[in-house]
Design a protein around this nucleic acid. Structure first.
Length: 599
RNA sequence: GGAGGCGUGGUGUAGAGGCCUAACACGCUGCCCUGUCAAGGCAGAGAUCGCGGGUUCGAAUCCCGUCGCUUCCGCCA
């Protein structure tokens, strides 16, 4: 027996005259005394059901009167064209209605803690998460789930058609020394030993390349025990990919092709469009100079400008530094001193020494503050180079450390972009960031550290600087950014033993240590590892962008809150003494733990 | 670990030392109503203002502490 012959989203004029059975939730009920309308909802849509006493027994009509929101019901009725002028253009099924002649209440419902049939109202998220199964019933959340499904389905089809195969890798993995904090899983069979949940299948996918898979992908769950952000969850999903016999360009083209195709083919679903086609490729150096951030929001300009040369020899003390740069906040000349002070504070928090503000009025820069102290020639130079116009606000900063200056202004640019809503909410500004510096010097530990991971290949032309000038070595490493988010990151890997050894030597890693930590990798690489590389786009972040959602929780069915907890499930939860015993685990207080450590 | 924001009937908000016997909208309950689709009308129930302490003649309102949620910094090879 089937509960329904049709979904609540599929009936049209052509079905008029048919007798159908529908089942779903009471979305809304309009009781006119004599006639009752019920908007019946299932995942596929909403259909108006009419209960008319003329066509019903008294008992059935009474039952219809007892219906409340979110009751689960089944209705048998006739599809009829709505009377003239009564069609509802807001509903896909709005030309017809179902005149009920039989009603079954499959399950009543308590009054929900919040309304399901209106998702325009903002709700306390703690409440939503506590009743996530109700929250997900709301149209917006259901739509997000559908966008995510379409995206993942598209990925599988797209990559399958291009010779990729999906291979699953273990969730019970190995604790790795570097990188993010891991979730540990105690072993029952091996007292005192642990599995670790993977931060990503990085090493395993490289081993799959050694295995000859050549084109691998996986919709892979990853785990990181770090503090949460709006765009960071303790468990998240990556499109993990790796390819053999490829260079950087091959990897970029596959991902760019996939995202371009999905964006364009499903424009009607998500309503977003590409800002750039093809995606621009910017070097790390260029992006830091122009935007001050390695994940810039490119939906708007507001680029940093450089007036260092023009300010050389200035008598204005704040600009007596090696580098003077700034940006133009369009149409912000109305900002009050209080507002610009706030921006100055923001810039300082992000490493700027201060912020110099110029108000561009109808007749040039206002003669107050810096505007009074800079010479006319200096002001003219700033106006020419910045291109500021009357009504704009010019913000400048100076520093001897150029990268620090870029970063401070970059964060300021990003903040202003958000506040002024400069980005088109329907645009996706994808861009590749390439040629990242491979190493940076850790001042506190007095040693070179890898910016990505130690299997990242250096650019061929930079190999010669590996020993002489490590800061100059750029990697075959790339990020995909979109609207201010990093949405993918990857690299071409080292496949030659000699290069790998040189990198490890630079990082102060002896072969002995390296074998201890990564022996399984190094050993595998000695059995004919092909040249290979890969990338891992973040499924959650991309879905968030397609859904136009403000955080990851909106596109994850059952997310964790900021404390990495789930209040609906009540996790993390305590476990029984017996379970702990089996796992050879004893809970100790912080004091006891400290005591053991110091002994 | 640190900084900011928020916490008032079921939900979303208003209130900023006495106007509060806490208001409004939605929801909920009952009654009326045969063409609505955010239905409409009438009536009603529902809040120890997150919690604890303090200041004051008087606290939702001010102060201190605490808890919860959230955003950001640190952290995320």
């Amino acid at each position: 027996m089937h509960y329904k012959t049709h979904t609540c989203g599929e009936l049209r004029l052509e079905h008029a005259g048919q007798t159908v059975t529908l089942a779903g939730w009471v979305h809304r009920r309009r009781d006119h005394g004599g006639v009752i309308f019920v908007d019946l909802r299932d995942r596929f849509g909403i259909t108006q059901v009419v209960f008319n006493p003329a066509h019903l027994s008294a008992e059935t009509f009474a039952l219809a009167e007892s219906l409340r929101n979110e009751y689960v019901i089944q209705v048998v009725g006739d599809v009829v064209k709505r009377p003239e002028g009564m069609a509802n253009p807001k509903l896909a099924t709005g030309e017809i209605e179902v005149v009920a002649n039989k009603l079954t209440v499959l399950n009543p419902s308590k009054t929900p803690p919040f309304v399901i049939n209106d998702d325009t109202q903002e709700l306390d998220e703690a409440l939503r998460l506590r009743y996530r199964y109700l929250d997900l019933r709301r149209e917006r959340m259901m739509r997000n789930l559908i966008i995510r499904h379409r995206f993942v389905k598209f990925i599988r089809d797209y990559l399958d058609a291009r010779g990729f195969i999906e291979v699953e890798t273990p969730i019970l993995f190995k604790s790795t020394p570097e990188g993010a904090r891991e979730y540990l899983v105690p072993s029952r069979l091996h007292p005192g030993r642990f599995y670790a949940l993977p931060q990503s299948p990085q090493q395993l996918k490289q081993l799959l390349m050694v295995a000859g898979v050549e084109r691998y992908f996986q919709i892979a769950r990853c785990f990181r025990d770090e503090d949460q952000r709006a765009d960071r969850q303790p468990e998240f999903t990556q499109l993990d990919m790796e390819m053999s016999f490829v260079d950087q360009n091959d990897v970029l083209e596959v991902v760019e092709g996939l995202l371009t195709a999905f964006t364009e083919q499903f424009a009607e679903l998500h309503g977003k469009h590409l800002m750039f086609k093809p995606f621009p490729r910017l070097s790390y150096e260029e992006v830091m100079e122009r935007f001050g951030r390695d994940k810039p929001d490119l939906r708007y300009g507001m680029e940093l400008f450089d007036v260092s040369a023009a300010m050389r020899g200035t008598s204005f003390a704040p600009f007596q530094a090696a580098h003077v740069k700034g940006l133009v906040a369009p149409g912000c000349a109305h900002f009050t001193r209080r507002q610009t002070d706030e921006l100055t504070e923001f810039a300082k928090r992000n490493g700027a020494r201060g912020l110099v503000v110029l108000w561009h009025d109808a007749d040039g820069y206002r003669a107050s503050g810096a505007g009074a102290k800079l010479s006319d020639a200096e002001k003219q130079a700033i106006m020419r180079i910045s291109g500021s116009k009357p009504g704009d606000l010019v913000l400048l900063a100076a520093d001897d450390d150029r990268m620090k200056l870029n970063e401070a202004l970059g964060e300021l640019r990003h903040e202003l972009g958000l506040r002024l809503k400069l980005g088109d909410p329907d645009a996706l500004a994808f861009a590749w960031i390439v040629d990242f510096p491979m190493f940076s010097y850790d001042e506190t530990e007095k040693r070179w550290v890898a910016n990505h991971h130690l299997f990242t290949a250096p650019r061929d032309e930079d190999l010669e600087f590996l020993e002489t000038d490590p800061a100059r070595v750029r990697g075959k490493q790339y990020d995909l950014v979109c609207n201010g988010y990093e949405v993918a990151g990857g690299s071409i890997r080292i496949h030659r033993r000699d290069v790998q050894e040189r990198v490890m030597r630079l990082l102060g890693l002896s072969m002995e240590e390296a074998y201890q930590k990564f022996g399984h990798m190094l050993e595998a690489f000695e059995y004919g590892a092909p040249p290979h590389g890969g990338i891992a786009p973040g499924i959650d972040r991309l879905t968030m962008l397609y859904a136009g959602a403000p955080n990851l929780r909106e596109v994850i069915a059952f997310p964790k809150n900021q404390q990495a907890a789930d209040t609906m499930l009540g996790i993390p939860s305590p476990v029984s003494e017996k379970q702990l015993q089996e796992l050879h685990i004893r809970i100790v207080t912080e004091e006891e733990a400290l005591e053991r450590l110091t002994k």
